[in-house]
């Protein structure tokens, strides 16, 4: 079932269908919130808030655009508001810093060495490469969704992700 069909059903008081949208986009919303807030509890609160806002404003959703980019924007705005209230706004360049919130102590020990280098390399990338790369790998967005979200042509998104990977591979080989 397409997103716009689910939205239409929700607008007809079939609220239970909203669960499908939550199912589809929870990873995107949570990971986006995480990249901005870098705190599991805050990210969860912001993600829930983003879904509630999306639900309340479902009537204003324009099906010409992808639901993913619409909810991604709501999430970004929610996080920005939250950070503004907390007055510890994370600079947008640092927003896509790689940190795994769910590592257990064992995983942290085992994976730290192998991950830390890649994390450092990703964090060292220019934000214009890091952001689409993280949206693709962390948030699970597709090329066209990233293009719509970042408001750049899809060819640029593809190229930046490709170049980011190439830079990472070369840096890892060095």
């Amino acid at each position: 079932m397409q997103d716009y069909e689910i939205v239409r059903l929700c607008l007809q008081d079939r609220t239970e269908y909203f669960e499908k949208l939550v199912d589809r986009y929870q990873k995107l919303v949570y990971s986006l919130a995480w990249t901005y807030l870098k705190d599991p509890q805050l990210a969860e609160d912001a993600s829930q808030e983003a879904f509630v806002k999306a639900y309340k404003h479902l009537a204003s959703y324009n099906p010409e655009y992808k639901f993913s980019t619409w909810i991604a924007r709501i999430t970004t705005n929610t996080c920005t508001d939250l950070l503004r209230k907390r007055k510890d706004l994370c600079p947008i360049d640092d927003a896509f810093e790689v940190i795994d919130p769910e590592d257990t102590p064992e995983q942290q020990v085992i994976g730290r060495e192998t991950k830390s280098r890649l994390e450092a390399l990703i964090n060292g990338l220019d934000p214009k490469y890091k952001q689409p790369l993280m949206l693709y790998h962390l948030s699970g967005m597709k090329y066209d969704e990233i293009a719509e979200y970042l408001d750049v042509p899809m060819s640029i998104v593809k190229n930046r992700i490709y170049r980011a990977r190439k830079m990472l591979r070369q840096a890892m080989e060095d």
Binding site: Q26, Y30, D100, E102, G111, K115
Partner: peptide, 12 residues
């Protein structure tokens, strides 16, 4: 692995 993220339990 570096970019994996787990959704909190009972989020939905």
């Amino acid at each position: 692995t570096a970019t994996s993220i787990a959704i909190p339990d009972g989020f939905k």
